[in-house]
């Protein structure tokens, strides 16, 4: 297997303080890998370090077995879609214009025609069932709709990898489920997702690989079994009980 993202021995220091220490992480194709940990554990920093948005103090990242330093930023940009935390467009553009921003890296590389751009935009709007919002202004749609539009922006870039920093935050249950389904479809079609999620029950529902992080270190990773009472209680510092309900695992802090 050559495709996928492999990071090993990642170190990040900001202002002399070590934020990430010797972190290894693997993002495999067709899988949703979820990063879980308390606030300030370094989750967002690790995600940005993988994407090169923050400089690594050490370690290596490979995309499809290619060292990241051998890939130009624009070449990387057509492979990845980054859904940042609390991203909000600064201008009141319409939904279609916002989604079309996802085509910028392709236009920059000159590898996409106008009709290909339009097809990708339509497909992304269709995947999230928001075609009806196409001509609406950003300020005239709800927070939940905006989250879907921002994911459509990412999908319009036809990425191989999606990096999503707390994509479910501030969303009602219906929009959370809609987002989860869209990400699962994306993976079923061969993509890979790396996401940070705080809601443990939703995380368990969304992901199939999990990495637990505390104090800048990855303390456990693997499949659903790593989400056990002992691991979770240890990294969050509160006791967390689990239960099965309707075939799903739910997590309750004591």
């Amino acid at each position: 297997m050559t495709d996928g993202v492999i990071a090993s021995g990642i170190n990040v220091s900001i202002g002399g303080r070590e934020i990430i220490h010797n972190a290894d992480i693997e993002i495999a194709m067709g899988e949703i890998t979820i990063l879980i940990g308390p606030n300030g554990a370094g989750k967002s920093t690790l995600m940005k370090a993988l994407l090169g948005l923050i400089e690594c103090g050490g370690g290596s990242v490979t995309f499809d077995a290619q060292p990241k330093q051998n890939i130009t930023p624009t070449q990387l940009a057509v492979q990845i879609g980054y859904l940042g935390q609390n991203t909000k467009p600064e201008w009141n553009m319409n939904v279609e214009d916002l989604v079309s921003l996802g085509r910028l890296p392709h236009q920059e590389l000159g590898i996409s025609s106008k009709s290909q751009d339009q097809a990708a935009i339509n497909e992304a709007l269709g995947a999230l069932e928001i075609q009806h919002l196409r001509k609406r202004k950003i300020e005239a749609i709800s927070g939940g709709e905006l989250a879907l539009v921002l994911l459509a922006r990412v999908l319009a870039g036809k990425p191989k990898y999606i990096f999503a920093d707390e994509p479910l935050n501030h969303l009602d249950v219906a929009h959370q489920i809609q987002l989860i389904k869209a990400l699962q479809v994306f993976c079923k079609n061969g993509g890979a997702v790396f996401a940070i999620v705080h809601d443990l029950t939703m995380a368990a529902r969304l992901g199939n690989k999990f990495a637990l992080m505390a104090n800048g270190k990855i303390v456990a990773n693997g499949d659903r079994q790593v989400l056990n009472t002992q691991n979770l209680s240890e990294i969050f510092g509160v006791e967390i009980a689990t239960a099965k309900f309707n075939g799903q695992t739910i997590f309750v802090p004591k």
Binding site: K48, L51, G52, L53, T72, P73, T74, Q75, L76, A77, I80, G81, Y82, G84, T87, K88, P89, E90, W91, M93, L101, L104, P105, Q107, E108, R153
Partner: peptide, 20 residues
């Protein structure tokens, strides 16, 4: 001009578009 478009979603997203 195109870099202004990339920046409309913030500096980090712009950088994820490959913007210098």
């Amino acid at each position: 001009a195109k870099s202004l478009d990339a920046l409309s979603l913030g500096e980090e997203t712009a950088q994820s578009f490959g913007l210098n």
